[in-house]
Structure formats: structure tokens, C-alpha cells
Amino acid sequence: MMDYYQHKTILITGAASGIGKRFAERVSGVPGVTLILWDLNADSLNETADDLMENCKVDRSIIDITDANRVELEAERLIKQNLTPDIILNCAGIVTGKLFQEYRYHEIDKTLRVNVSGSMFVVRAFINRMIERGSGHIVNLASASGYIGNPRMSVYAASKWAVLGWSDSLYLEMKQNHTGIDITTVIPSYIDTGMFEGVKAPLLTPILKTEDIVNRMLKGIAKRKRSIKAPFMVRLTPVLKGILPASFFDWIAGRIFGVYQTMDSFKGRNN
């Protein structure tokens, strides 16, 4: 499995915490790996980068991925240094858990910019160079909320629906044009990264450990899977939603599995 990552340059956004950080730690010991770590949290990013420099080459940038001009400048710098990524891992993301009428306009804008536009900007900055090279792998972190709406998650769910649609379309474009670029979409339920602190796990859908989803990602990416879904109920949800009447599906999801109450005690990160 880990052979796939040998001698690859891997760009990770949101690399200072959660899935991005743990993924970086796991691949840092692979022979020949170069890590490009992007995050807006300077202290955490520098701490992570300093730790990983003992194992591999590390290039770090304190960067707001919603700033298209900055992303483009960083991409140009890396390309000139022959550091065009072999793998782009879009892990940066945010969530605000509240009823839609409670959102401030800037919270809506920020969620969509970080979770959707930011990931698109990062890929757009490198994709032509990847196409010219004839190889690359883009990994986008979506969510089970892209399959099913949920109270107090309207804007976050909207952003992840967008990620799913973009990833599917991008996959088809790359395949139809024989670019040699793989697209993998990661679709998990809640993960214990701290981002969803306080949520209540639905019936039969346990909160995933960070280590578990990273292990699944390492394996699935190496196999060039189109999607990585976890746990099992995430795979079953779109099937049930497709065959059941909407009102009956809502009754099962809300009354039986408790999906629609999962965010009632949401706290989130304290930063």
C-alpha cells in the first residue's frame, strides 16, 4: 500500500490539524516523499512541519486557500522549483452548526469559500501542469452530509454537496480526456477531529476515529478508488434515499436512526 506514495510530492491543505496532519505524519516516513503543507494556523503548521522535517523534505506555506491570487503565486513558486504535486489532498474545511436563520452573511460566505472555492482554487492552480505531465491524483474531502440534509448543517451540507458534484464532474473530465489524473472523493460521516465536538452519533453510524479514516484513505488512494465511504451506513444512505418516498426516508432517518438530532449539542472547535 505505502509503495504508492514512494518518491511522490504530496500537497496537503489543512495540514496543521485533523485528517491533514495525521495523513502527513503517516506518509512522512515513506522513502522519497516530499510534503507541501498548507494551513492558515501559523503556530500549528510550523510545529507540524518542524516535527516532520526529521522524516522527509517539507515545504510549508501559511496560506488562505480562499485567496486565489495567493494560491496561484504559491503554485507558480512550487512549479518553478519542480515541486508540482503528484497528489493533492484537499483537507481544509470549516463548519458552523446553527439554524439557517441564525447564520450571519459572512459565515455563509466563509463556509462556501473554504469548503468549495478554496479546494477548487488549489486544484485549478496545478491541474494544467499535471495534465501536461500526464499524471496526478486529486483527493477531495467531502462528507456524508452531501448525501443527506441535516438540521443545523444547511450551509455545511450545501458546501459538501458542491464538493461531490465538482469531484464527480472532474473525474469524468479527466477520464474522458485521458489525462492520466485520478480523482478520489472521500465521503465520511462524523470524525473525532474536534471539528464536530459535541455531536451525537446516529444509530449504526459510529463517530470515526481519525486514524481509521486515514487508514482507509491511504489504502483507497493507493488503489485509485473513485470514492472512499465510511462507515457502512454512508454507502447505504443514497440507496435508501433513492428507493424510499421522501417522507418515509425522513421518518426513518429522524425517528429511527436519530440523524436529524445529531447536531443538537454541537460545540465545534474552540478556535
Rank of each mutant, 00 (worst) to 15 (best):
M2Q: 09
Y5K: 06
Y5P: 03
Q6S: 15
Q6H: 13
H7L: 00
I12S: 02
I12K: 10
A16Q: 00
A16C: 08
G18F: 03
G20D: 11
A24R: 00
R26F: 13
R26G: 06
V27G: 07
G32K: 12
V33N: 03
T34W: 12
I36L: 15
L37F: 01
A42D: 15
A42T: 15
L45V: 14
E47N: 14
T48D: 07
A49R: 04
L52M: 06
M53F: 00
N55F: 11
D59C: 08
S61C: 14
I63L: 15
T66Q: 12
D67R: 05
R70Y: 11
E72S: 15
A75E: 09
L83G: 06
L83A: 12
D86F: 03
D86M: 04
I87S: 05
N90S: 08
C91K: 05
A92Y: 12
I94A: 00
K98F: 08
Q101T: 08
I108K: 07
T111R: 04
V114P: 11
V116G: 01
M120V: 14
R124H: 11
A125Q: 10
I131Q: 08
G134E: 09
G134K: 08
S135G: 00
G136M: 04
G136D: 04
I138M: 02
N140Y: 03
N140G: 00
N140I: 07
L141T: 04
A142G: 13
G146C: 12
G146M: 04
P151F: 03
P151V: 09
R152L: 10
A157M: 05
A157K: 05
K160N: 08
W161C: 05
W161D: 03
W161I: 13
A162Y: 02
A162M: 04
G165D: 08
S167K: 07
S169C: 10
S169P: 00
Y171D: 02
Y171W: 09
Y171V: 01
E173S: 08
E173N: 08
H178W: 01
G180Q: 04
G180P: 11
D182M: 05
I183Q: 07
T184C: 06
I187T: 09
S189R: 03
I191L: 03
I191Q: 02
D192Q: 11
T193R: 04
T193W: 10
T193D: 08
G198V: 12
G198A: 12
V199C: 04
L203R: 12
L204C: 05
L208K: 08
T210Q: 06
D212W: 02
R216T: 12
G220K: 04
I221C: 02
K225Y: 02
R226P: 05
K229W: 02
V234C: 13
K241G: 12
I243A: 12
F248V: 05
W251M: 14
I252H: 06
G254D: 14
F257G: 09
Y260E: 11
M263Y: 12
D264E: 15
